[in-house]
């Protein structure tokens, strides 16, 4: 009897401790379930297979950008240039493609495969430049990527000069606007990126280094991790993911034009953070990003399925995101003492 009484409290506290530790992961899932339940009960058109595919399609490009951003944020860095790079790369692939006669852009048409290779090379160069600035020169990533955002916006402006391009290489057009077994190709590409990134972060040495650098940079350095290489690599990965999203994005939207993808910056950061990945690095991952993407996707989609004042939608969206972030911060605060106790 007494031994049972003695054993109960620790078990309860262990369970509570586990729940508190997982609150960061559990809270966004609860938010997601609550939103799905609410929109399903208030709209007859929300809970359908067609609309579910619609949501996946709408978050697919953000997902590709968010994959790169997850790597960057896990190392406690930030990349503010993701949307501008996506825009510039999308315009670049159009620049290397023959445009209709009515498009008044001085471009340089080459074979489709070469256009994709050249564009990816340019994208890699952009990532490398950012990495050089952050890891070699020592510019904080916030400032360096802000500068890169301006440069990428400038490249976009120079190439299209206020015009709109409509043609892209066939492979890009297929991946951006085609379907694979009835599923939009962008969803399949996003899935490939998410799964690959999850495997890299979970099962490779590089993935563990990413967490180490974000969790405790000094400790990582003392452990022999090449911190500058890891940070440089995640910035290049971020640029490449943005570039692929940009290429598919112009085909998805059917045109390439200036400032087209501006909103992807905040959407991608929000998806990563709302999902539970810490802005301070070292905690989170692709699973969290997927939940964050679904929260944002369901929220944006669901608000269009219920009768609500258009002006109110923006406010509601902001309030729900704020609530999710507050939960995220409290989850971290609750976890911190427990981690300290364990230590």
């Amino acid at each position: 009897m007494s031994s049972t009484a003695e054993s109960r409290p620790p078990r309860r506290s262990a369970a509570m401790g586990f729940l508190l530790g997982q609150l960061r992961n559990i809270a966004p899932v609860i938010v997601l379930i609550a939103m799905v339940a609410f929109f399903s009960s208030t709209s007859s058109t929300f809970l359908t297979v067609a609309n579910f595919m619609n949501i996946l399609s709408q978050i697919s490009l953000t997902a590709i950008i968010a994959v790169g951003l997850t790597f960057v944020i896990l190392t406690a860095e930030i990349d503010l240039s993701v949307a501008a790079v996506a825009n510039a790369v999308g315009i670049m692939v159009a620049y290397f493609t023959l445009q209709p006669e009515y498009v008044n852009i001085a471009n340089m048409p080459v074979h489709g495969v070469l256009a994709i290779v050249l564009t990816l090379a340019a994208c890699f160069a952009i990532g490398l430049t950012t990495a050089f600035g952050v890891t070699v020169i020592g510019i904080p990533s916030f400032i360096m990527t802000l500068a890169m955002m301006q440069i990428a916006n400038g490249v976009s402006a120079m190439l299209v000069r206020g015009q709109i391009a409509y043609n892209f290489p066939d492979a890009i057009t297929f991946l951006g606007s085609g379907s694979i077994f009835g599923v939009r190709a962008t969803i399949v590409v996003a899935l490939v990126f998410l799964v690959t990134a999850h495997l890299v972060l979970t099962y490779t040495r590089f993935g563990r280094y990413v967490y180490m650098v974000g969790g405790n940079r000094e400790a990582a350095e003392y452990s022999g991790v090449n911190v500058r290489f890891v940070i440089g690599a995640v910035l290049v990965i971020g640029a490449m993911c943005s570039g692929v999203a940009g290429m598919l994005g112009v085909a998805y939207f059917g045109s390439a034009q200036q400032t087209q993808f501006d909103t992807y910056l905040l959407d991608a950061i929000a998806a990563v953070v709302v999902g539970g990945t810490s802005l301070f690095g070292g905690r989170g991952g692709i699973g969290n990003t997927v939940i964050g993407l679904l929260v944002l996707g369901v929220l944006n989609n669901g608000l269009d399925h219920i009768q609500i004042d258009s002006f109110l939608k923006i406010l509601i969206r902001g309030l729900i995101l704020l609530a999710a972030l507050i939960v995220n911060v409290y989850a971290q605060a609750l976890r911190a003492p427990r981690t300290a106790d364990e230590g």
Binding site: Q58, F253, Q260, T263
Partner: peptide
């Protein structure tokens, strides 16, 4: 926003 309007029109 072109991207936001596209999502709205998809919906």
């Amino acid at each position: 926003s072109a991207t936001k309007q596209r999502a709205s029109i998809d919906n």
